[in-house]
Design a binder for these strands. Structure first.
Lengths: 223, 223
DNA sequence: AAATATTTTTAGACAAGCCTAAATTATGTA
DNA sequence: TACATAATTTAGGCTTGTCTAAAAATATTT
């Protein structure tokens, strides 16, 4: 290949997975955790880890898990940036549902062209969040921390704005579709049931009852 | 893989190449021709040909070249359709130059999602030609023949519209950029030099002298 | 028609990325 | 502390897609 910095789809997917896991936990990322996330086997992970270690994209000590190097983290964040920008494109421009964009963006994120990413960013008018409320890393690699809180932890009578989801699965997103819960709408906590943690919320002109399970997977931004 | 019909990048590229070559010539496509076009070795082509033949995507007789089956042709045309739609997107929406779109579209054409292609087509308002004037195959697989003629064969004093190129190389497209020759502009043949076949044309307010070499690579549509 | 040149195929090898099964190391518990 | 369990790595194998070198078939030339 004639590209100056070319990484394979598999390499980028591993780096992205390791980055995601390392954000959840300060400890080194374990082989099994990566295998679970990528739906592959631990032995395959060990193979790939060695290759990425040889390329100085992560630090690896046998039996001790891995940590991304700056170089590895940079590639991971670039991949996340591309993924989320493509999700915006699919959602805003092509009118895909928010439950449909992930799979296609999973392919598009591997397209190699720095200019393409920049032009896409400009075309979309520099979006800051993807259709699920996740922040889009900047060109400089900086990822803004969002200070969203769980809907399940919203105080009584407080108003907030629907801002994101924890669970990104199609099933969950489609359930929210059915309830007409979309990003940007106002929610107010009307009642909390202390027994099962379920809540009553007011959105638009409707009152909705949500289980604690659902409320724990919805992120809101205080007004 | 869970997709119903999944072909690898390599398979799609081979089918596309064979389709392209079979359009140039009614004969069966030779191994070497494929190797040349794909910048690979004849031995590699033989290997892949066998696989595609096993999958009933082409008919193959040893030492006799190959011919696409209907199934193989369908996939090739779908790939061309995707390639050209993405080129339109890059050119019309992201404002890439017509000399820059091919390489990126070469990657984008392999994204798997039928609904993506349809939505892209709609978003682009059903374009009929890509930024180089090549026709975009329909969803039904029908490729409209363009009745363009070579600028080198335009009759004296006749007016025509710049409609496409034969040579798709960046070097050639950039040369046309410099001359401000773009698709859609009117051209009139002012003079033909019988000695070297070079021509004098009138475009917008300018007169331009073009070598036969250049004129033979420009396609025009009679008014 | 025979000799030569070209094209195509075969044989064997390699890297990437995955797998299973077995061995090894780490961890948790009696 | 020793044993059992869990996590990780190694060993060896598979597929895809590529390559080189050599053999075989076809085409061309004399």
């Amino acid at each position: 290949m004639y590209f100056c910095s070319m990484y394979t789809f598999a390499e980028e997917n591993y780096l992205k997975a390791i980055y995601k896991l390392s954000e959840l936990d300060t400890q080194a990322v374990s082989t099994n955790a990566i295998a679970d996330l990528l739906q592959t086997k631990a032995a395959s992970v060990t193979d790939m880890i060695k290759k990425l270690s040889d390329k100085r994209l992560l630090k690896y000590e046998k039996y001790k898990g891995v940590e991304l190097t700056d170089k590895g983290k940079k590639i991971a964040i670039e991949t996340v940036r591309k993924h989320r920008l493509w999700e915006c494109f699919l959602y805003d421009k092509l009118k895909f549902g928010w439950d449909e964009v992930h799979e296609i963006a999973e392919q598009l994120e591997h397209i190699q062209s720095e200019v393409l990413v920049d032009k896409l960013d400009e075309f979309l008018e520099f979006p800051t969040h993807d259709p699920h409320g996740d922040p889009i890393p900047g060109k400089n690699g900086i990822v803004k921390k969002t200070n969203f809180i769980l809907l399940s932890e919203l105080e009584l009578d407080k108003k907030a704005i629907m801002a994101g989801v924890v669970d990104h699965s199609s099933v969950f997103l489609q359930y929210l579709n059915k309830l007409e819960i979309t990003l940007g709408i106002q929610v107010q906590l009307v009642e909390r049931n202390e027994y099962d943690g379920s809540i009553e919320i007011q959105i638009q002109r409707k009152k909705l009852h949500l289980s604690k399970e659902v409320a724990k997977n919805i992120l809101v931004k205080l007004k």
